[in-house]
């Protein structure tokens, strides 16, 4: 192969510089928030210019944020929805996918059509709202679990995963007299672990991010998931309860840094876990793209 030409060298150099710049632009907002959250509130308020490190050092905003009861209950509610919701998601989605991949079932096609049609047409927000309300789920944390129990896209991905399990393995289990449930949990699920783990990630991220249904269905703030609490603090600027009791005049300053620490508290866990899961997520994108 020929030695790289001058223009090639220029391109490689520019490309490297550009990508480094892109990384800096991506990371800086996050670092800015981290620095700000650790800064002394008063100096941050006075400061004009770009931050390279925390201004002074203060954990006061974290202390206040952590002592905010809604942040704690929000975390707990989110964890509850994650654990219970995921169990419901996985069970129902696997049931659906299992049913759709069995041979020789008379009503399979019509039922598949009933399911797929929902991807094309939906009743809209208001009918959905009243349906959930009529079921008695208003102001109940189950409104964050049952209405989103199955995502049809995910169901289709799971069906494709299940369909890839070799028939011969299923047949031998059938001869051994395995029931459907044994077949599903003991044979098919373990053999489609990559698909199952992608389901866990997809549904998990969806639960972690969800706030809208909570905002229309949950009246009592102690039932709110973390994201809805974060919305209250970050976008509706409700930091008064956390900032209360600060020295007269410094409430404004402290409420700014409280916001930053709430961002850090509600985001850090996922950013710490993410690099370890990145591989699976990336695989998930591919599988989703190919199979969907």
């Amino acid at each position: 192969m020929a030695r790289p030409s001058v223009s090639r060298k220029v391109f490689v150099g520019t490309n490297t510089v550009f990508l480094v710049f892109l990384c800096a632009v991506t990371l800086y907002p996050l670092l800015y928030i981290l620095f700000s959250s650790l800064s002394e509130p008063e100096s941050l308020l006075m400061y004009t210019g770009v931050l390279y490190k925390p201004l002074g050092f203060s954990l006061e905003s974290y202390r206040r944020a952590f002592s905010y009861p809604l942040l704690f209950s929000g975390y707990m509610n989110t964890l509850f929805v994650l654990a219970v919701g995921l169990a419901v998601n996985l069970t129902l989605t696997a049931f659906g996918a299992f049913f759709l991949t069995r041979g020789n079932v008379m009503w399979q096609r019509p039922i598949a059509l009933v399911i797929v049609f929902t991807m094309f047409f939906n009743g809209g927000l208001i009918p959905f709202y009243f349906t959930v309300k009529d079921l008695g789920l208003y102001n109940s944390i189950w409104s964050l679990i049952f209405p989103t129990a199955i995502n049809t896209f995910n169901l289709i991905i799971m069906r494709t995963g299940f369909a890839a399990v070799p028939r011969s393995l299923e047949e031998s289990a059938e001869i051994d007299g395995a029931s459907h449930l044994t077949m599903m949990f003991k044979i098919i699920m373990p053999l489609s672990l990559p698909t199952v783990s992608i389901m866990i990630l997809y549904y998990g991220v969806a639960h972690w991010n969800a706030w809208f249904n909570a905002s229309i269905f949950l009246r009592d703030s102690y039932k709110w998931p973390l994201q809805l609490v974060a919305r209250q603090v970050l976008l509706q600027n409700d930091t008064s309860r956390m900032a209360a009791g600060a020295v007269q005049g410094s409430e404004l300053a402290i409420s700014e840094t409280i916001k930053y620490s709430v961002i850090v508290i509600s985001t850090l866990p996922i950013l710490v876990i993410y690099p370890f899961l990145q591989r699976y997520f990336v695989k998930g994108v591919m599988v989703g793209a190919i199979k969907a």
């Binding site: 928030i33 991010n209 974060a230 603090v233 976008l235 916001k259 509600s266 985001t267 950013l271 993410y274």
Partner: peptide, 10 residues
């Protein structure tokens, strides 16, 4: 991986 609410807050 940052939630929508937090991104909008930022």
């Amino acid at each position: 991986f940052i939630s929508l609410v937090v991104v909008c807050g930022i």
